[in-house]
Write a protein that binds this DNA or RNA. Structure first.
Lengths: 183, 183
DNA sequence: TCAGAGGCTGACCGATCGGTCAGATCAGTG
DNA sequence: CACTGATCTGACCGATCGGTCAGCCTCTGA
C-alpha cells in the first residue's frame, strides 16, 4: 500500500458505488466508471485487478459485519434472545450500510425506466400513500414501503405455497405491521 | 426443424421468463433464450421485434392489473377504505403474478453467486430462522423473509432520514410484525 | 403443379464489453 | 546526472452483444 494514499483509488470506489446503484453491476462498464472519475479505463484497471475486485472492496465491510452478526446470534442461549439480537443487529446493519446494500438492487432502477413500466413509480407512490393511511409521518411511510418492497421481492420465492395460504400470511402481516391498522 | 410450430412464440416467452428471473434482463442474451428454446437467435427475433418486446409482453398482464388497482384505490371514499383495498389488492396481485414480479429482481440472484457473497445465503437463512423464533410455520417464515428483504431493499432510499429515526421505525415495524413478538 | 405465405436459418454487421500491453510522465533518490 | 518505481494513457485484443438480411424449407390451396 502506497504511503501517500492516492485519492484516485477512493474516487474510483465512490464512482463505482454510484454507477452500480444506478444501473447495476452488469449495467455499469469500466468505461462508465472511468468517465465519471475523469480518468482512463486502463487507470481503473491499474488500481483494481478487475471489475469484480471493485465490487468486492465495496461490499467487504458490510459483509464482515453481517458475518459477525451471524456469530453473535448463534451464541445466544435461546430463541427469544436470538430473535432480539437478530432484529436489532440487522436493523443496525441496514441503517449503517444502507448505501452499500442499496447497490445490490442491481439493474432494478434502470429496468423501471423501460417504457413498459412507465407509470409504475407514480402508482407505487399512491399505493404507499394508501397503505400508510395518507399519513405524512416518516415511520408510517417507511413501514408501507418496506412491506410493499418486501412482498414484491419475495413472493416469487414461495412457488410451493398455495395461493390461499400465501395470501392469508401476507394479509396478516400487513394487518399487524401497518401503523393505523386495517379494521 | 421447420416443423409447423406456432407454439414457438409461447416457448420463447417461457424461456425468457426463466432466464430473466435467473440472470436478470441485461444478463440474459437473445442467444441464451434461443438456446433454451432450441432454436436460432434469428427465430427469436422473428417472433418478437426486439428484446424489449419480450419483456413488455411478459409484464403487460401484471401491469394492467396494477393500473386497475390504482384506479380502484382512487375511487374509495376515505383513507380507511383506501387502505383496505390497497392491502387486499396488492396482496392478491403479488400472489397471482408472483412469477412475473420475480423477474424484476434482475441481476440480484446472479450477483449473489459472486465470491464476495459466498456465505450470504446461508447466513440469511439462519437470520430468518432467528427472526421467525425458530418456528417452522410457513407464515412465520414468510413474515421474516418479507421483512428482511423489504428492509434490505428500501433502506438505501432513506438517505435523508437520520439514523436514529430510521432505526427506531424499522425496529418498531419488526416488533409489530413478527408473529412471536420481541419482549 | 406451382405460387405464395409462414416459419426459420446461417452469415453477417457495428458497437461495446472486460482486459492486456508497451510506453509516456513524473517525483524522489543516490 | 542516471535510475527507479508509481501512476497513467492510447491502442489494441478476442468475445459477445442486439439486430439485419437474403434465402431455404414446408405446407396450403387454387
Amino acid at each position: 500500500m502506497a504511503r501517500p494514499t492516492p485519492q484516485t483509488h477512493d474516487e474510483i470506489l465512490a464512482a463505482a458505488a454510484r454507477r452500480f446503484a444506478a444501473t447495476g453491476y452488469r449495467g455499469t462498464s469500466l468505461q462508465d466508471i472511468a468517465t465519471e472519475v475523469g480518468c482512463s479505463k486502463a487507470a481503473v484497471l491499474y488500481h483494481f485487478a478487475n471489475k469484480e475486485a471493485i465490487l468486492t472492496e465495496l461490499m467487504a465491510p458490510a459483509i464482515e459485519v453481517f458475518c459477525s452478526l451471524d456469530e453473535r446470534i448463534a451464541a445466544q442461549p435461546g430463541p427469544a434472545a436470538a430473535q432480539r439480537v437478530a432484529a436489532e443487529g440487522f436493523v443496525d446493519l441496514a441503517v449503517r450500510f444502507r448505501s452499500e446494500i442499496a447497490l445490490l438492487r442491481g439493474e432494478f432502477p434502470e429496468l423501471l425506466q423501460q417504457p413498459v413500466f412507465a407509470h409504475i413509480q407514480q402508482i407505487s407512490e399512491r399505493l404507499i400513500d394508501a397503505l400508510a393511511g395518507q399519513s405524512e409521518r416518516a415511520s408510517a411511510r417507511i413501514t408501507a414501503l418496506v412491506l410493499l418492497a418486501g412482498i414484491a421481492e419475495t413472493c416469487g420465492q414461495f412457488a410451493d405455497v398455495p395461493d390461499q395460504e400465501l395470501g392469508d400470511a401476507l394479509l396478516g402481516l400487513l394487518r399487524r405491521a401497518l401503523e393505523s391498522p386495517i379494521h
